[in-house]
């Protein structure tokens, strides 16, 4: 079981036995208008064979977190601090040259829009074989064979022919399968999927999710699934981490998040999902806007949009930022007490 727990930001935290352990990860971008705090003190751990869903709306820091783990922010102006221990190496401080060895081989990544993420000028097969060649001492022939085999494994029919076709010859779903083949060709132990189904037709989404789960089971890899779609989370994740304003506001096993929701923001997210019985014009959005990452509120980041802040009283929510408290593997960052949350949940 994956454990999601908090720890005070301790200096020089030591590596544990966890497969991936992220401690107090923060990412800031200097801009002309000031410092943008995209990720603020993320903590989580992940074990092999497990799937962690990171959920949140646009701008909540999901993608930036994944890019920081991938080391894709190295060489940019982004300031990444904290710790991300992976196989005894800290991904935050690892130099770019060493990070490059991990990328593709130990950590694979799948992106949102497979059309723009694939190079339009090279054949799909070439792009997959390229990923194989860079990490394996192999001939071009062997790389081609590996890529064809991988294309077959991700369910692309007649892979030998499809190898020589260009991305624009592929349908959206087939492109995402090709992306998955590219990310998995070196059998990485950790796979990060950044909104892998968002750009796809609903009918194709389930196929892609099934495929990812299947391949994950085969290779016993760990999967971080970044999405804004709670339906996707419910389908494939073991654990969930809900992000808001660059912070984790609630985390825990997927069932607990859905059936024992502890944070008003998560409640809002669940409530805003339309169901078949939702009548036209009856959507339930969370009122207000996400906070500006240039100037985060001093208190709870969600307080400005929270309808239950007055239950806490004394303006505490606006003044004091709640810590992430963990009880039996279920973490929340909220001043509301357990009984208050239960009252809120049952009253809806």
């Amino acid at each position: 079981m994956t454990q999601l727990h908090t720890s005070a930001p301790t200096a020089g935290a030591t590596a544990t036995d966890a497969f991936l352990e992220v401690r107090n990860l923060s990412v800031k971008f200097p801009t002309d208008d000031g410092l943008v705090s995209a990720v603020n003190g993320m903590d989580f751990t992940l074990e092999r064979g497990q799937t962690l869903g990171i959920v949140g709306e646009s701008g909540s820091g999901k993608s930036v977190t994944s890019q920081a783990l991938m080391g894709l922010l190295k060489g940019t102006s982004a300031q990444v601090t904290g710790q991300a221990m992976f196989q005894g190496k800290d991904l935050v401080t690892l130099p770019e040259s060493a990070m490059r060895q991990l990328r593709g081989r130990n950590i694979g990544m799948i992106f949102q829009d497979p059309l723009s993420a694939l190079h339009p000028f090279y054949t799909v097969g070439h792009q997959i074989a390229e990923a194989y060649l860079v990490h394996n001492k192999a001939s071009k022939k062997q790389a081609r064979a590996a890529a064809v085999d991988m294309l077959g494994r991700v369910g692309i029919p007649s892979p030998e022919q499809r190898y020589d076709e260009y991305p624009h010859h592929f349908s959206g779903g087939m492109r995402q399968r090709a992306m998955i083949a590219m990310a998995l060709i070196c059998e990485p132990e950790l796979l990060i999927a950044d909104e892998p189904t968002t750009a796809l037709d609903v009918t194709v989404q389930a196929q892609i999710l099934d495929l990812m789960s299947e391949l994950q089971e085969e290779t016993n890899s760990a999967l971080i699934l970044i999405t804004h779609d709670l339906g996707v989370v419910a389908e494939v994740c073991d654990d969930v981490l809900v992000m808001y304003g660059g912070q984790c506001v609630e985390s825990g096993p997927v069932d607990e998040i859905f059936y024992d929701t502890q944070h008003p923001y998560t409640l809002g997210l669940l409530n805003s999902m339309p169901t078949l019985s939702t009548a036209a014009g009856e959507l339930n959005p969370i009122p207000g806007q996400p906070p500006s990452l240039l100037d985060l509120p001093k208190g709870c980041i969600f307080s400005a949009r929270c309808q239950y802040a007055e239950l806490v009283g004394e303006g505490k929510c606006a003044k004091e930022r709640p810590e992430l408290t963990v009880e039996a593997g279920h973490g929340k960052r909220c001043h509301l007490s357990g009984p208050q949350i239960i009252t809120i949940r049952t009253s809806r």
Binding site: G108, S116, E130, V134
Partner: peptide, 22 residues
């Protein structure tokens, strides 16, 4: 700034390959 450049980096390609080939 294109996505496929990010993909090329995510594959672990050398900077020279990313810059010139992709």
């Amino acid at each position: 700034g294109e996505d496929f450049i990010r993909t090329a980096r995510a594959k672990g390609l050398a900077p020279r390959t990313v810059t010139f080939k992709h």
